[in-house]
Design a protein around this nucleic acid. Structure first.
Lengths: 344, 344
DNA sequence: TAGGTTTGATTAAACGATTAATCACCTTGG
DNA sequence: CCAAGGTGATTAATCGTTTAATCAAACCTA
């Protein structure tokens, strides 16, 4: 910057003013400075700016449950939104452990991030950390900043399955400690309505007994009359789909399978999985915006390290209908003396 | 730091020296300073340090092909290795497009990263960018810093399948422009040996004709005598597995399926997929180490913006045998007049 | 004891931007 | 013709750390 100033015979303060548009600089001089900027290939020193202003222009992204296959999409969306808002994104992984999560946050703070976006590990709460924070979890989580409307997503899927004529539906979840999963399950039940019989399978419980990666025993459920299997996320849907197929159940003719999140593979398996897609771009935008506001607030005297304010409503999810769900099989007609029940 | 100096009645330079261990400071004073450090909750200002030293302690991570489901694992591994080496990790996404890749790298440089780790999009080359760079691709890529020994992985899988008695194997790849995929295919062929019949299916070509997500037509291949399907990464393996199962082929009794990378879902589908796991922790460690060296070198006069030096050999992959591969089916014996061909 | 070396600490100048305070000059109204 | 106000630019301090240069005192050696 000093170089530019010297080259044009002005002071460095003028250059700074011209580029930031803050002080009073004539239009022509501003233009000349702009030109010199590109001619000399000027790149502002973030470090100096940070030292002076106290802001790094970097936000941290904490994803405790990094094995979450949704990670790429979230990271991508956040990075885009942050870049658009002029922020860089520093990642922090905590390998799932709560203690490491704290350590990861500590590393971010030492690096001087202006704020942090956290996608909490299921069931964990985020304590006060002295830095602006935005949380992406579920609308029912206290302190949640923004998230998908998981409940409504469940409702959509419930209605979809109901509309296909399914009367006995198995809801498959992993853990009862997850707000997101609970929301989805709740929505599913609401969407199915009270005339449809449903049952919930908690894989967590099953695995506690039969070991991780055990069979879900879905063939038995099919024999028991279940015609639809609504999983709470695509990984479980995939598990259900492959188990059903291996055991000779035709999907979707004999059983429908659905998931949540529209992960990469959901569209390439056979049959492709009907699922709900999150609008992560919007979520990321809102999270970054809310965090940005919180950062600004926290700088006003007595604003304090604010937590980003909550969005009132969740971001809508969109139903993606593929071939893993279909019309419910005609229930096996128990031969009763009723001739009006024709073949079909 | 000034505060600490004032509190102890020494100069700030002494504090700096004591903490960095560089100058000459008496042991007792150093101890007192250390104590004051924790008492006052001193956190060094990265910004000031950066301004003075020109190093940010942050490296950039560029993953152009972010849809790559291996992303979480790579990001996690790099973050861990970087944190251990005292670096932070700034991510940059480029939505696949080459132009955006350049833009993303530009953003990183503006933020002042000390170096960049790139996992290149298949088939793309990384140009000179004036900053130390480490590349993770495949041993056969020029300029590659470190990567798995994909070829050897292929060999391992090839031998595994050969050992199970498979005589007609379909190799499934996505693109012929990927060095990684080519290495794996080459290794597979070598591992199978020349007595085993194999054929390569390029999904890219198939989709150019039949559209993305089309059926691979594996049932026909099974009818044609193929008993094993070796995909070049797990997503393709999953696609193959589900297609086979949907069409009523029993895996692994009638056909074996294998993949690469051991992605999250590979172990939970039914049957779980036999695959090769990359040692990403080691790769990340070496990449960070090499990059760190390159950063140091680039600071010596005339060291220039060095590219991290290459590791001589790739990092070994480990074969994870699960239930998707099994003994080859006895080929249907064509009834010829040869009685010595006994039943078995 | 003078001269040289070692030890422990200080001084002061950077690094590159931002910004409040100041200044010189010009315009304009009374 | 002078005071008031506006405009365009400069001055200089500041952010917190590192580090080369310097310095004073103590220690050693001949």
């Amino acid at each position: 910057m000093t170089e530019i100033a010297a080259a044009l015979g002005v002071s460095s303060a003028t250059v700074s003013n011209a580029l930031s548009g803050k002080g009073r600089v004539s239009a022509e001089l501003t233009a000349k400075i702009r030109q010199a900027t590109v001619d000399l290939g000027y790149v502002p020193s973030q470090a100096a700016r940070t030292l002076r202003t106290g802001r790094t222009g970097v936000i941290g992204l904490v994803l405790p449950d990094i094995s979450n296959p949704l990670f790429p999409q979230i990271a991508q969306a956040i990075e885009q939104a942050a870049a658009a808002a002029g922020y860089g994104v520093l990642i922090a992984d905590s390998r799932g452990e709560i203690a490491q999560q704290t350590a990861a946050i500590g590393r971010l703070i030492e690096r001087g991030v202006d704020g942090i976006i956290i996608v909490p590990r299921r069931g964990s709460r985020v304590g006060e950390i002295g830095t602006p924070v935005a949380i992406i979890d579920s609308p029912s989580t206290p302190g949640n900043t923004v998230s998908s409307d998981h409940w409504d997503g469940g409702v959509q899927m419930g209605r979809h399955l109901a509309g296909l004529g399914h009367c006995k539906v198995l809801l498959i979840a992993q853990s009862s400690a997850s707000n997101v999963q609970n929301d989805r399950i709740g929505g599913l039940k609401a969407g199915l309505g009270k005339n449809i019989c449903h049952e919930t399978l908690l894989v967590e419980n099953l695995e506690a007994i039969k070991g991780a990666g055990c069979a879900l025993g879905l063939a038995a459920k099919v024999a028991d009359g279940f015609t639809a299997f609504a999983a709470v996320y695509d990984l479980l849907a995939l598990r259900a789909l492959t188990e059903l197929q291996r055991d000779g159940t035709e999907v979707p003719r004999q059983a429908s399978v659905s998931g949540f999140d529209d992960l990469v593979w959901s569209s390439v398996v056979t049959p492709p999985i009907t699922t709900l897609r999150q609008d992560l771009a919007t979520i990321a935008e809102r999270a970054v915006e809310a965090l940005s506001d919180a950062i600004t607030d926290s700088e006003t005297p007595f604003g304090g390290p604010a937590v980003a304010k909550q969005s009132v409503e969740g971001v809508a999810m969109t139903l993606v209908v593929r071939q893993s769900t279909g019309q419910a099989m005609e229930p096996v007609v128990v031969p009763v003396a009723d001739t009006r029940e024709d073949s079909r």
